[in-house]
């Protein structure tokens, strides 16, 4: 029995899953997939950065995104600030938040003498649950949306292919963020300190770099990047306490696909995930579209156990 055909439908002759696919659908799907993929990359890059820095996977990453979207929403609701203008403020707020999370929780998790891996997974998982609870407590579980913004609902049409402006600008911000990050890590003192700390935390202590400070800044930077993503997402997505869940798994897969420790990997991973998602929806029932993403991840790591561009 093929997928989508029900047993009782054979009797009634029902055929599920009518799915119109035209050339235009394919091009449009790919274009949308590419834009969405760049956003996935932007959401995931903070995760990649933090992992690359200190081998920690933040299981509360989706909740960081949720906080960023709430900050954007409240700046809009109370100060009528457009999400685009709010983006730097959101990034700054998340920077502080990320650094505080490091200093209050992660610092102790990585210091654990036993089971460091599990401790950091579960302390950040606990943080995720806590943040969801707090969001529900303070913001109520209601669904919020930024109702009007400069870009919201606007779209550019090129030869019958629609490129929504929020995603387009989001994609540009993602590209700029990746370029900036690349420059930052390779060309600035702090970036070099970050790299050095990552490679040998003991040795940098000898040359007078405070490891905790570097890590805190690293977490801040990682969170700030999620902040940017959250500000863009808030333009076209809804906000509620559990909103991070849908993005978290995709973000982990994106980072792992690209290879842990590689910022460029997250960029490439995001694009691949976006495109694979689009293509899967053309072939399989839409409810199975993440299966495509997951299958590609497995395929890649079975061939290259460290992802596409991973070094660790």
């Amino acid at each position: 029995m093929g997928p989508g055909v029900r047993q009782d439908d054979i009797e009634t002759g029902l055929e599920h899953g009518a799915k119109p696919v035209t050339a235009e659908t394919i091009i449009q799907s790919l274009a949308s997939g590419l834009l969405m993929g760049l956003l996935y990359g932007l959401i995931a890059v903070g995760l990649a950065l933090i992992f690359g820095l200190m081998d920690v996977v933040n299981f509360a990453h989706g909740e960081f995104l949720m906080i960023a979207m709430y900050v954007t929403f409240f700046l809009f609701a109370y100060f009528a600030l457009d999400p685009l203008l709010a983006a730097p403020l959101v990034a700054a707020a998340l920077f502080i938040f990320g650094a505080v999370v490091y200093l209050l929780i992660v610092r102790f998790a990585v210091r654990a003498k036993a089971n460091t891996g599990m401790v950091q997974i579960f302390s950040t998982f606990g943080l995720a649950v806590l943040m969801r609870g707090l969001a529900q407590y303070f913001f109520t579980p209601d669904y919020r949306s930024v109702t009007h913004s400069w870009l919201g609902g606007k779209t550019i049409s090129v030869g019958g292919i629609y490129l929504p402006e929020p995603q387009l600008v989001g994609a540009l911000i993602a590209i700029a963020a990746f370029a900036g990050l690349y420059f930052f890590i390779n060309r600035t003192d702090f970036g070099r300190a970050l790299e050095a700390t990552r490679e040998d935390a003991g040795a940098v202590a000898l040359v007078g770099i405070d490891k905790n400070k570097v890590f805190a800044l690293g977490w801040g930077l990682g969170a700030a990047l999620v902040g940017l993503a959250g500000a863009v997402m808030a333009i076209f997505f809804y906000v509620f306490p559990d909103v991070g869940a849908s993005f978290a798994t995709i973000a982990y897969v994106t980072v792992a696909l690209g290879g842990f420790g590689s910022v460029f990997g997250a960029f490439a991973g995001g694009i691949i995930v976006g495109l694979v998602e689009a293509v899967t929806t053309l072939i399989l029932p839409a409810s199975l579209k993440t299966v495509g993403i997951y299958a590609v991840y497995l395929l890649v790591v079975f061939i290259r156990p460290r992802g596409l561009f991973g070094s660790i």
Binding site: G4, H16, G17, A18, K19, P20, P285, A286, S287, L288, K289, T290
Partner: peptide, 8 residues
């Protein structure tokens, strides 16, 4: 029924 789309 020209489209029957079940989504996640």
């Amino acid at each position: 029924v020209v489209a029957d789309i079940k989504y996640r």
